[in-house]
Design a protein around this nucleic acid. Structure first.
Length: 476
RNA sequence: GGCCCGUUCGUCUAUCGGUUAGGACAUCUGGUUUUCAACCAGGCAAGAGGGGUUCGACUCCCCUACGGGCUGCCA
């Protein structure tokens, strides 16, 4: 089975993908990647990307979780077509399909109670074997039906095999004898996941089901429903889950698992998209690319079959490239959103303006927003500058003396690097020190830090008056 | 237990029977330097193990080991 054959469907039909999370918590990073793959595949081909909230589990579904998932997707820059579909709202349609399956003879009423099933399983276990539950009602005469609650079960074929032609996993053969008659409609007439997902995907016109490979086995059961209804089977693409650095399934103990946590840590969305796209997918040697390029390149054939591990170092590196590539205005805008997400104080107008003019000399040095802010610290502070412990050491008596004689020379110069350079070089030479020795107290005076952008850049960004004032403060 | 999927440098991966097994991140060394970075040059580093098939296997088949998933009136 050649993996390159992406679709058995006609190329003319527009592609429709979907992301279908259950609203039981925040958007997991793995879910975010699944959504991203679906989005890239559809959007890159002029197709539609739909959103469906699988809220049939009324116990665990919450509107807060739905809101968090939508926020997470929005932050990642993934937009969906139309309104999100509530699966629960479609329960009547699901029940209707279950009844139609009965009419077609591909489903039946089962009156076995949960207790009976539990006993059946316990007995099998006691014998040391494992047996699928076989309902005695599968071929029962309706005349014998009791007046009791029932579920509707799929009348699944007991022999033969079901073949999943998966774009990622290849040809997967499941023996029908290993599958039981799954419940489609519960005794309270609500649908199970297995039924609902098939009905909804069919009704929504989904052409490509791209989801985690924890659903690979489920695909066989779902395909049976497609067959039972005579519906066209979508193209399957079961992608491996993301694992933690230790190779185990990604969980809380590995650190952040929620997409919004990454926003709060200060990773730019574009970098996150790039990293997540490359995690488990490759296109030759392409590493750093824009979303437009990703849209252009993304294909199902490039998805690997092995689970990938999250690597924060590479995430940071990727994000660093994207911060450096970003447009200043856009970067400032995202930085502002980051401050909100991280619960940090917003920038004043003055700070925003100065930070924006400082971006050119800090953005290619930062991998995250906190780092960017730290590098740009000099542009955000106001006098008097409070030097940190390390930088204070370079403001000794000798250095202050040098600053004292240097400062007046800065009053009547044009404020350009070309004009400033000879003055600072001369000051260093005059005092018999290297430029590095002079730069240290300047950094302390201008930024209160030892690690800063170039002293020239800082001087140019904060301007002549502020520079002189800060130097005078430090020299005093 | 049964069934299904997976396994290339530490990590993400390229390779789709013939390559000195390539790139990126990380790491190490050197260079540049005004601190931190960035940047430049270079180094280290991989086909889980065992059987086949073949003139030739990372690539195809089988077994084993390890990892993951499913096996619910959860999704």
């Amino acid at each position: 089975m050649p993996r390159s054959s992406e679709s058995s469907h006609s190329e003319a039909r527009p592609i429709v993908t979907r992301f279908a999370p259950s609203p039981t918590g925040y958007l997991h990073i793995g879910g975010g990647r699944t959504a991203l793959f679906n989005w890239l595949y559809a959007r890159g081909r002029g197709g539609k990307f739909l959103l469906r909230i699988e809220d049939t589990d009324r116990e665990r579904s919450t509107p807060e979780a739905t809101a968090a998932i939508l926020r997470g997707l929005t932050w990642l820059g993934l937009d969906w077509d139309g309104e999100p579909v509530s699966q629960f709202a479609r329960k009547d349609r699901h029940a209707e399909v279950a009844r139609e399956m009965m009419a077609r003879g591909t489903a039946y009423k089962c009156f076995s109670t949960q207790e009976e099933i539990a006993i059946f399983r316990a007995e099998a276990e006691a014998r040391g074997s494992y047996a699928l539950f076989q309902s005695p009602w599968r071929d029962a005469d309706p005349a014998t039906f009791p007046d009791a609650p029932f579920v509707i079960r799929m009348k699944a074929p007991r022999t033969g095999e079901t073949i999943i032609n998966d774009t990622v996993q290849g040809r997967v053969v499941i023996q029908n004898s290993s599958l039981d008659d799954m419940i489609c409609l519960r005794s309270d007439a609500t649908p199970t996941y297995m039924l609902a997902v098939v009905v909804d995907d069919h009704d929504m016109g989904v052409t490509h089901v791209i989801r985690g490979d924890d659903h690979l086995n489920n695909a066989a059961r779902q395909q049976m429903i497609y067959d039972a209804m005579g519906w066209e089977i979508p193209t399957w693409a079961h992608i491996p889950l993301i694992h933690g650095p230790d190779g185990k399934k990604l969980s809380k103990r590995h650190g952040a698992t929620g997409v919004e946590e990454y926003q709060a840590m200060g990773y730019p969305a574009a970098g996150m998209r790039n990293y997540l796209t490359r995690l488990g997918w490759a296109h030759g040697d392409a590493e750093i690319f824009t979303t437009e390029q990703a849209l252009e390149m993304f294909d199902l054939g490039g998805i690997g079959r092995a689970p990938a591990r999250l690597d924060f170092k590479k995430l940071e590196n990727t994000c660093g490239h994207h911060i450096a590539m970003a447009d200043d205005a856009a970067l400032l805008h995202e930085l502002t959103a980051y401050l909100v997400a991280a619960g940090k104080p917003a920038l004043t107008e003055t700070q925003s303006a100065l930070l924006k003019s400082a971006l050119y000399c800090v953005k290619d040095r930062a991998k995250t927003f906190p780092e960017l802010l730290e590098k740009a610290h000099f542009s955000l502070i106001s006098r008097p500058v409070q030097p940190d412990e390390a930088s204070a050491k370079s403001l000794d008596t000798v250095s202050r003396g040098i600053l004292k004689t240097l400062t007046p020379q800065l009053r009547n110069v044009s404020w350009t690097k070309d004009a400033l350079e000879p003055i600072l070089n001369h000051a260093a030479a005059e005092n018999g020190i290297g430029f590095g020795k002079l730069a240290a107290p300047l950094r302390a005076a201008l930024a209160g830090r030892t690690a800063t952008p170039s002293v020239y850049d800082m001087m140019l960004v904060i301007g002549q008056d502020e520079t002189i004032a800060r130097l005078e403060d430090a020299a005093a």
